[in-house]
Every structure is written in C-alpha cells, then in structure tokens.
Simulated scan of single mutants.
Amino acid sequence: MDCHSQERLSAHHICRKTFLGAAQFDTGNGITLCRTCHREAHAGFNGRPDMSLPVDAQGGEKLASMERLYSILLDDAIERGRMCEEYYFLSDEVLGFLKVLQGFDPKTYFPGSRLERAYLILAEPELQMRQAIAGANGFSFGEQPLLPGGVMIVFDDEKDRSQSSILQARWGRL
C-alpha cells in the first residue's frame, strides 16, 4: 500500500465512512493511493458494516491496514515537516472510537499529535487479548497502553515472579 506511484491516484478514507461517519471529513483520515493500492484496500467486504458483529468480522475494516496507512501518513507528515492539526486533524470522537475498538476507555491517554495518537492506538495489542495472554502467563500489565519507548524490567527469579516484579517506565515516567 505504499508503492509511491504518482500515477492514477485515488483518495482513500483510512477509517471507512460507513464504519465511522464522524471520520468522513477529518483531514487526518485521508490518504492518496494509486489505483491498484486503492483497490487492494477495498478488497473483500465493502458494504455497510453490521455493527452488531465483532470489528472486522465481515473483512472490511482491516485494522492492520488502517494502522499501516496511519503509519505511512505519519511518516509523510514528518518527512515533509507538515505535522500540524490543520493538515492531519482527527476529532476526539474518532480517536475515542479507535480506543474503544482496541478495548480501551475513550479517555485513556495516548501521547503525541492526533495523527500520532491514531497510529499508536491501532499499533497497540487489543487490550482484552493482551490481558488474556499475560494472565495465562501469571502476570498483568493493567489497563494502560504499552507504548513504544517504554522499558520493562522482568525479574527471572521464580520466587519474585509476581505482578509487583514487573516494572514499566513509559515516556520518561516511572
């Protein structure tokens, strides 16, 4: 989806407008793709989603693709020195919706610009899945995001293998 072609371009909503109408006119929810990449992004289900089903049950949301497209948009904004809300705006409603998709409370803190937050939210492991895997291994991460740049210290000593033996420092805070 990032072929860098400059021919036969199409505008694409990263978060489908039929999935979240509030994102339709947010400038941070659009990306330009070549026609082939645009077709690939719409491959599979492309109708109105049944919101009673789990996310992506019909194959239309493609959360991993959304994460990738926000990553491409973010990289482009940084490379061009255009990281500003005017060009890459995403509403609180859209960001809150993405948080809920990943299992977080809409008020959960994610750092950075709105575009950076969209990427970080979608790059997070889904909260319930993360908790289930951690619990199956005898520990917990809690309900806060596991943001990049954090430090995790795990003591290998079996007697210290408790929830309190896992320390995390995120974004300079311990």
Score class of each variant (00 low, 15 high):
115 L>M: 07
43 A>T: 14
14 I>E: 02
89 F>H: 10
1 M>A: 12
155 F>A: 10
24 Q>L: 07
105 D>K: 03
137 N>T: 03
28 G>L: 03
152 M>L: 15
134 A>R: 02
21 G>I: 04
38 H>M: 09
37 C>N: 01
17 K>Y: 07
86 E>K: 08
66 M>K: 14
70 Y>A: 07
43 A>L: 14
4 H>I: 10
174 L>E: 02
7 E>L: 15
100 V>N: 06
93 E>W: 02
40 E>T: 10
83 M>P: 00
97 F>T: 11
51 M>A: 04
51 M>F: 11
145 P>S: 02
144 Q>D: 08
111 P>H: 09
95 L>E: 07
48 R>W: 05
27 T>S: 15
68 R>W: 08
28 G>C: 08
7 E>M: 11
67 E>T: 08
112 G>S: 07
152 M>Q: 07
8 R>F: 07
98 L>Q: 01
29 N>H: 11
118 A>S: 04
174 L>R: 10
12 H>T: 04
28 G>R: 00
106 P>V: 05
91 S>P: 05
109 Y>T: 11
19 F>P: 00
154 V>P: 00
60 G>H: 08
18 T>H: 11
39 R>G: 13
106 P>I: 09
102 Q>L: 01
139 F>I: 02
31 I>F: 00
102 Q>S: 03
148 P>H: 05
36 T>Y: 05
118 A>G: 04
153 I>F: 11
173 R>Y: 13
163 Q>I: 11
82 R>G: 00
8 R>N: 14
91 S>T: 13
